[in-house]
Computed example of a mutant assay.
Amino acid sequence: MTDAALDSADCRIGVRAGHSIIHVTVWHPQWGSAKTAALRAGLFGAAVSPDAASSDGDATPDVAVARQLLEDALGVPTVATWIGSIKVTDHSPEHAVSMADLGIRVDRMASSAKDPDGNPTHTELRMEVDGADATVRTIVPLAPTVAPGHDRHVAVTLHIDPFRSTDLTGAQVRSTVLALEDALSATVRENHAGLLVAVVHQEGAGTGQPGAGLDGVGRQDAVTLHYYLGVGAGDGVVDLDHLLNSLRATVSTWEIGEASLDDEVDPTWSAVQRYRV
């Protein structure tokens, strides 16, 4: 718990909406220098005396304390799922909101991030991945709280060789990628073993040759499918090693480039955190 003198309800929070999460800058009236006394008095009245707000009595803004204040107010799972970067400041941020208002915003995001069946929705963004332009499709929210117990990260990477795919149109290449994705996802789904959380299409350098790459132009485009496997509550027994062998057999059927499957234990979903923006 935080220091009893710090009430999370007193926080003023700067909010910057990300693509699927909220980044925050936290200020508490007991953080900062004596010059903030007038602002404190204006916000909280007699609850904070300007005379008591000397620099000697003020606490230093601390990210760990800010996180604890957020977790006390919103709950640990909510912060882990919906809050991105956490910064602190010694003065009230511009256009700041209260902790209660932040909670309302988070609740609104959470309610809109489910399809009619209660499953996570998806979002798509453009970003640079390892020096290449990429299109990234992820579930929302992209966080382990979506699937507790699913901590085995499986990354399937499919390379698209322009020479092997020269007889295919861009649409045919896309269909080939989607067919393998569907086959892998069906295997995971049938075993009740996890979910596909992100698909990353990295674009290769252009060649101008038709049929080379997902868009008809490109060299060695790559598509990476990120799965998280495991056993959740009520899922029963899942033989992950057997499942991985089945997935490897499916990946081995890829014919228009190199393909690989790598797996690792990753309980924090660190492998896909870069796409959580």
Results as ranks from 00 to 15, higher is better:
E124A: 12
S111D: 13
L184A: 04
V146A: 13
A183I: 00
T166Y: 09
E203I: 11
P210R: 10
H201L: 07
R189H: 08
D167G: 04
V197Q: 04
R152T: 14
P148G: 09
N119D: 14
A183Y: 03
A132P: 00
S185K: 03
V129Y: 05
E203P: 00
V146M: 09
R174V: 12
A198T: 12
V156N: 06
V199E: 12
D133M: 08
H122F: 12
V197S: 06
D151Y: 09
I139N: 02
L214N: 04
P144F: 07
T123Y: 01
K114G: 00
H122S: 13
A110N: 07
L184S: 07
V177I: 15
D107W: 00
G131S: 11
P148R: 06
V106R: 10
Q172Y: 02
A132H: 14
G131P: 04
S112A: 14
I139S: 02
L196A: 05
T207W: 05
S175G: 12
V188R: 08
A193D: 04
P120L: 07
T123M: 13
K114H: 10
P116E: 10
M109W: 13
T135G: 13
T121C: 08
E190D: 15
P210Q: 05
S175A: 14
V140M: 07
E190S: 14
G194C: 06
D130R: 14
S112N: 11
D115N: 13
V197F: 04
L168F: 11
L184N: 07
D115V: 03
V177R: 02
V188Y: 03
H201M: 04
V177F: 03
T123S: 13
G208A: 10
G206S: 15
D182N: 11
T166W: 07
A147D: 11
G206K: 12
V173Q: 10
A186W: 01
G131K: 11
D130P: 00
Q172E: 15
T169N: 01
Q202P: 00
D161W: 03
G194P: 05
T138G: 06
E190C: 01
T121Q: 02
S185W: 03
G149S: 07
H159K: 08
T207E: 09
G213Q: 08
V106F: 09
G131M: 11
N191G: 01
G211F: 10
I139Y: 02
L178R: 12
L158N: 05
H153Y: 11
G211L: 06
G211S: 11
V154M: 07
A186T: 11
